[in-house]
Design a protein around this nucleic acid. Structure first.
Lengths: 218, 218, 218, 218
DNA sequence: AATGAATGAGTTTTCATTCAT
DNA sequence: TATGAATGAAAACTCATTCAT
């Protein structure tokens, strides 16, 4: 039974999570005070503690929300695609969009790094997410190899891991130097790089393999 | 003139910086208290404030130390090499060593992410370091293109940026999932990937291009 | 007119009082949160505030319940007895039973001490209860003196006060060190002590006067 | 090496402990805020947390101080006495003085009750103190029995326990009803009661055995 | 070149209480 | 006769920083 009109509590809960994602993205976990989140959400600290037992519980809620959100979008846009190359394109496009339209990719990156050793309970969901991400790409590469559109002397899991590395490393460079890095161009270049690198020997061609235009801005 | 016997003050200063690097690597800037650094260094807080004006000053000292340290090592081991491919190998080897032998690479990653927007003063040296890193690799790729050992339909700055992305993204995956990622193998795979991808059309061959053995552990 | 079937409200009210007595006994007034009582009673905080104006009102309810309960039991079991010695035996037996079968004696002790100065409104009922207790025993000793079974060179009110002291002091030692104190034995020893001490000179005898077996356990 | 002039830190530490004893006696542990103790001691909360790691640590400090203080006084005044009866007199006199001149006895009683189950770490020192108190009195009674001034058909440990009960129970009645209870008279009555009750059969006499004047005031 | 003590502003968290439904 | 959500004041505790010695 879904209630026709959402209850008051659910709405403010979502506003708290949304404010938390925003603040944590910008200033990290330690750098964000409960007070600031409450203010940003337009509720009192008490309301926040009514919904979440402590700061970490709130962060876990935010993480779950964002990981779910990202994976749902990926599944929606990418899984249906038959063509492995199109799938990789869709992955990088999704990342670009999530990184520029909202700060949701940055939230994941920031919190993942901050929680590395300091918060094992928080690290776990991130680690699981990264593994799922690599597994998803491993499947994509494996399918491409079975179809013969990808070379098979490169192990699919390795290709997946390098792809993830390229995406994350590019995002990090972008967040760190938005003036110096053109994210959409760079991300498309990753797709092109892997299309080219993973092409089977006989079919390899230069066209599209290299992006002549530098992604270094200014 | 290096004094034969170092003064007492210099020694405790270095111990403070060393303790700071250690603590910051593990718990980040906000997650590390002055107290903890002082205790780890075996001095009192007062001593720490004698050497550094405030916490940020200490962090700047640690960052300078680590950036200098990393770049000096890269310059020492890599610059002398004539062969671009050998240079890339040397870069990834250096990163592996700095990431595993000490937590100095992780220090850079952790602090770079933490300071993204929150601390512009800290972001600046990192941004500059990343630019120097990309410029250094741009030169390497440019030289390779001039020698004809690298294809020239890929812009050298783009190749450099993608190379940096792959290295950082791989390190992050490793810190986040040391059980799941074999860092040395993965890093060597990056060098192999770029050697293969950047090879000029006529010379491209499969052998060595792909690492059949997965880098995903157990 | 007792309604055949108790109303729903009355039942939950009694469950709240019962939960409150339990929690207050264990953790005191300040140490018990409204939330915990509500949870223990299986109701919401709102329900609790429907029945009681505030926390202190609830405590007053619990105190009244327990003081009434204890005094009713004493009256039932003790008052009918003709023999003063049997009356004292009955008093200590009642205390033993209320101290071991439930935590109702402990509730009284705990709250009485906690409210000493801090809550005059709460101290009053306890003070009144203690006075009634002493008066009741004063009567018992007076009757014994009139009958000639108790010496009359000891003032009855003093004997009463010392008897109360012995009972409470023994209970406290028991709550504080249940391993070290054997409550039933100790309490019976109090009755024996007063029987012996209060015996008139001519009748005094040794037999039964002292409990040879120590009440110190282990 | 005792420094001729006490260091600044030691003095404010003692002032904090003293303020804590005062506040805890009056309002109990839960009822006393750190803020209030700091204000009463004339220091800031920070100073308090410099000397004590948390509220419980401060309470432990206060407890140790008070238990030590009480036991030192008892040892000083009582141990040297050869005569067991004089020793019991000295014990009750000491209790009267500690209960009326300062609130130090009340501190012990209040905190002992409050910590019964709620704080096992705090209960331990109290339990140990009570055991030492009983043991001390057991020795006193044993010596009296060996000298033949006390009957020996009452076990010394039991007599000790009953004596402690009488003392504590009387103190509690006094704190609870200072108008209704005359502490010095009541306490002396305890000593008289035990002198009388414990007298060997042949020597028993009435004089001094009973206090004709009631201790019930007003 | 350092120490020990202290500050004070800020942090997370708790909790009695209220109120619309 | 309740419930769920929320408030706000106060609690415990942290921590960068200062300063007399």
């Amino acid at each position: 039974m879904i209630p026709a009109r959402e209850r008051r509590g659910d709405q403010s809960r979502r506003e708290i999570v949304s404010a938390a994602i925003d603040c944590f993205s910008r200033s990290g976990y330690q750098g964000t005070s409960i007070d600031r989140i409450a203010r940003a959400a337009g509720v009192t600290k008490g309301a926040l503690y009514y919904h979440f037992k402590d700061k970490q519980d709130l962060l876990l809620g935010a993480i779950a929300d964002r990981i779910d959100g990202f994976e749902r979008v990926v599944v929606e846009r990418v899984t249906s695609l038959k063509d492995p190359a199109a799938a990789l394109d869709a992955v990088v496009d999704t990342c670009v969009q999530q990184a520029t339209a909202s700060n949701h990719r940055r939230f994941i990156l920031t919190l993942m790094v901050e929680s590395l050793d300091a918060y094992p309970e928080l690290s776990d969901p991130f680690r699981a997410m990264m593994r799922r991400f690599r597994e998803f790409l491993t499947q994509t590469f494996t399918i491409g190899q079975q179809k013969g559109v990808y070379r098979d002397d490169v192990a699919a899991p390795l290709a997946a891991q390098l792809f993830v590395a390229a995406v994350i490393g590019t995002e990090l460079q972008f967040y760190q130097d938005p003036q110096g890095i053109d994210l959409p161009t760079s991300m498309r270049a990753i797709a092109a790089q892997f299309r080219d690198w993973m092409a089977p020997a006989e079919r390899r061609s230069r066209q599209g393999g290299g992006a002549r235009r530098s992604s270094e801005k200014g």
